[in-house]
Design a protein around this nucleic acid. Structure first.
Lengths: 300, 300
DNA sequence: GTCAATTACGTTCTCCGTAAGGATG
DNA sequence: CATCCTTACGGAGAACGTAATTGAC
């Protein structure tokens, strides 16, 4: 098959539009000589005269008309994809879907998303809140471009990097004796009324080992939602340990947060994306805007 | 806009198909290095990564998928027009419409048309029979590509060239005294019973001047159709003068033809085609096959 | 003589291939 | 260390521009 380029297509289209070699050349930003050669070579390639040189009036042969009709369609397609890709490269277009740990999705991410959308208003932003297992599955299924999640099953099979570590803090009522300490250790919590978070969440998993040796007074309270926990703690029903990112669920006027010392007691948050793939420009630019939450201990 | 070529489109399509630079390069008949450069340049041009190089597995980015989808459509279009034009250049396809003088259409042309269709079976052949005025109008309206006709009004405004001259001959019954002569002049016809062809046909027009001075016996017979004239002459009702091309209407067993001497007594037959246009390949190839009728005087 | 397209020719630039480099498993 | 892609570099060819040529009016 013939090797065609947009140069040639443009030349024929211009020639059809102005029916004049010199003017067509000008429109193509080349000399008239160059255009003449381009057309001649094309005609030689297809072994067919495509242009009628009648001295007085230049016009296309029937075969030339056929060619130029295709040329117009092709140029329209190429211009469209060209503009489309340019828009995407400059983030005037695109789509990024993020799946994130509920606690991140609820508090840390929203301002970042807002900033992202303000900066790239043309990019559609999709957000799912899901626990690690489901989040990773969404990445595998390509239902999401990017996951922000704690470690979950199958993480090794995906591309990932540690984004930041989310340290655990003690949460207790403001009036609680421990509330005024600069920090506490697990040992300091002996004898306290402890409210447990249970089930799938990453918080429970990461705390399990650390709390195994602790000797708490059993409150009988086991909740799934951090928001529930926040209500219990605020009302003096017990204390607990949560990651800094979950602090936003708590009322700062009623609950104090105290750093917990010891053995790297923190939850790792990973950035995860599909194996064998690369982030889209839209996703990449979102990652650029991700900064770990400031490590604010205590409130306001 | 970016300057794209089929080279680049092919490269992306191949890469999408085999997901492997080396194999894709092979498919494109270039080295792997060249393909790599081609892709890199394309990515630089659109300022976007289109291909994921994951060492283990090569695949396209979402933007690359978009590009390749367009690339496939464009290549399909270009291949189609490419094949179409090749077919036309090699006359496996095409269409030519000829409008010709009725006498030419009836006898001289048919074997030529048959030979043309045998040689170029893919080319559609259209034939109209029309007198000069209508034939030229068909050329102007682009209802026909080519006219084979005597001079008519408006011929000067179209492109034309003399194809051949169609000499006039005397037609008379075989038993007629003039039938055995090698040639006759208008003067020799004095006193003969002459049958006139009248109206639009080119024959009457060209004869008018030559016959003005002739002194015929009035037969009162004036016919429009040459076929009618043939019947009258064959039955001894008179003699007449017709162009050689019209001899085919006459029965060679009953009518003799004798060349007419003097003052270029012949009808010019022109090849006519539209102003400011060039013959299509199909029409051009038909013209190549046109040979003036052999100047056979008398029959058998 | 003027206008417009083609042809001739030298220059520039693109694209390719060879070969060296680098990353990954 | 083997595979596969990228980078470096030199050469061949394509395309362009300048300028001379042809052709029509």
């Amino acid at each position: 098959m013939i090797d065609l380029s947009t140069r040639v297509l443009r030349a024929m289209i211009a020639l059809d539009e102005v029916r004049h070699f010199s003017l067509a050349a000008e429109r193509c930003h080349v000399t008239q000589s160059a255009l003449s050669q381009t057309i001649s070579k094309l005609e030689a390639d297809v072994n067919l005269r495509l242009v009628d040189r009648d001295r007085r009036r230049v016009m296309l042969t029937p075969e030339g008309e056929r060619f130029v009709a295709t040329a117009r369609r092709v140029m329209a397609e190429l211009e469209e994809i060209s503009i489309d890709l340019r828009d995407r490269s400059e983030l005037r277009k695109g789509r990024v879907v993020v799946t994130a740990q509920p606690s991140l999705a609820a508090h840390w991410l929203p301002p970042i998303i807002a900033a992202y959308q303000a900066r790239y208003p043309g990019v559609q932003f999709g957000l799912h809140d899901a626990l690690p297992e489901k989040a990773l599955e969404q990445i595998r299924q390509r239902q999401a471009d990017l996951a922000l999640t704690a470690r979950g099953p199958g993480l090794a099979g995906l591309q990932h990097r540690l984004l930041f570590r989310d340290p655990f803090v003690l949460v207790c009522p403001c009036a609680h004796p421990l509330a005024r300490r600069k920090s506490v250790s697990i040992a300091n919590l002996e004898g306290q009324r402890f409210i447990r978070l249970i089930r799938g969440g990453s918080i429970a998993q990461h705390l399990e080992q650390a709390l195994r040796e602790a000797r708490f007074v059993d409150t009988g309270l086991e909740v799934e939602q951090v928001a529930t926990l926040a209500g219990l703690v605020a009302n003096g029903l017990g204390i607990s340990i949560v990651p800094v990112c979950a602090l936003a669920y708590f009322d700062p006027d009623r609950v104090a947060a105290v750093p917990v010392k010891g053995n790297d007691l923190s939850r790792p948050i990973y950035l995860v994306w599909p194996a064998g793939a690369q982030l889209s420009s839209a996703a990449e630019s979102f990652v650029q805007m991700l900064k770990p939450p400031e490590a604010r201990m205590g409130f306001g």
